[in-house]
Simulated assay, not measured.
Amino acid sequence: MTTLTPERRERLHRRVRFIVAFTISYNVLEAIVAMTAGVLASSAALIGFGLDSVVEVLSAVAVAWQFTRKDPERWETVTVRAIALAFFTLAAYVSIDAITSLVSQEGPDHSPLGIGITALSLLIMPLLAWWETRTGRELASKSVLADAKQLLLCVYLSGAVFIGLLLNSVLGWWWADSVAALVVAVLAVREGIEAWRGEVESPFGVLEDDDEND
């Protein structure tokens, strides 16, 4: 691993602070829009998506707190475990929400606003997660990589809700978003366990290995 100069390390620390500040700002907006759309469409999936944004804000706040400390590396374990708890919280809510929707056989109403916000997240979050991952790998920071995985999980959830809303609107498949949400919940539990154990790796490992070999 290449040793970072103090100047480079400080530059990366500033980048992390920028990434988490953007993440917090965007996800606050996303939470408001998604939960509003969820209430208007009586969509538990969209409300859950909005609450996921709240969890992402908490994860980003944990990393932001770490990188405002004088010695960020000292607080690595505490921050990673806070992110792990965020994963578990998200998984619990999504699971309960999805199972409740399946049992009650209640699907969301058509929601152009919901489709729009999930589509926007599918454009923004992969790029943000990739940038944070590159930064976390260079810093060898498990907390930054864990937060990047939280962003990537948002991509999965955005895709699940987006597809579920489309299938419900076009084909009347009311159960589609609940089934997809359960898959996301399983992924969240897996990522939470890995973060709690400190076994955090880049979610873009294959792509980054290819970049390094070029």
Rank of each mutant, 00 (worst) to 15 (best):
A160I: 10
V206C: 01
A148H: 14
L167Y: 00
M125T: 12
S178L: 03
V200R: 02
E194N: 11
M125G: 12
P112D: 02
K149I: 04
R134I: 04
L139I: 04
G164L: 00
L127Y: 00
E191L: 15
V200K: 03
V161R: 12
T118W: 10
E201H: 11
L113E: 04
G116V: 05
G205F: 01
W175H: 08
S141L: 06
A195L: 09
L166M: 01
R190K: 14
G136K: 05
S121V: 11
A180N: 07
F204A: 05
P112V: 07
P203S: 05
L207W: 08
V161D: 12
V183M: 13
A185M: 14
E199A: 13
D147R: 05
L151Y: 02
E208I: 01
S178I: 01
S158H: 14
I124H: 07
Q150M: 08
W196N: 15
W175S: 10
G172E: 12
Q150R: 11
G205I: 03
T135K: 08
D177K: 12
L157I: 06
L120F: 14
I117F: 05
W174K: 04
A180P: 01
V144H: 02
C154S: 11
I124V: 14
T118C: 02
L207E: 09
I117D: 11
D209Y: 10
K142T: 07
K142F: 09
V189C: 11
L145D: 02
L123R: 10
Q150Y: 15
A180E: 07
F162I: 07
L122H: 08
G205R: 10
V179D: 06
V155Y: 08
V189Y: 15
W131M: 08
I193C: 12
T135M: 06
A188G: 10
T118I: 11
A119Q: 13
R197T: 12
S202M: 07
G172Q: 10
H110P: 07
R137S: 00
Y156R: 09
S143P: 03
L187K: 13
V200N: 03
W130V: 01
G136I: 04
A140K: 09
W196Y: 15
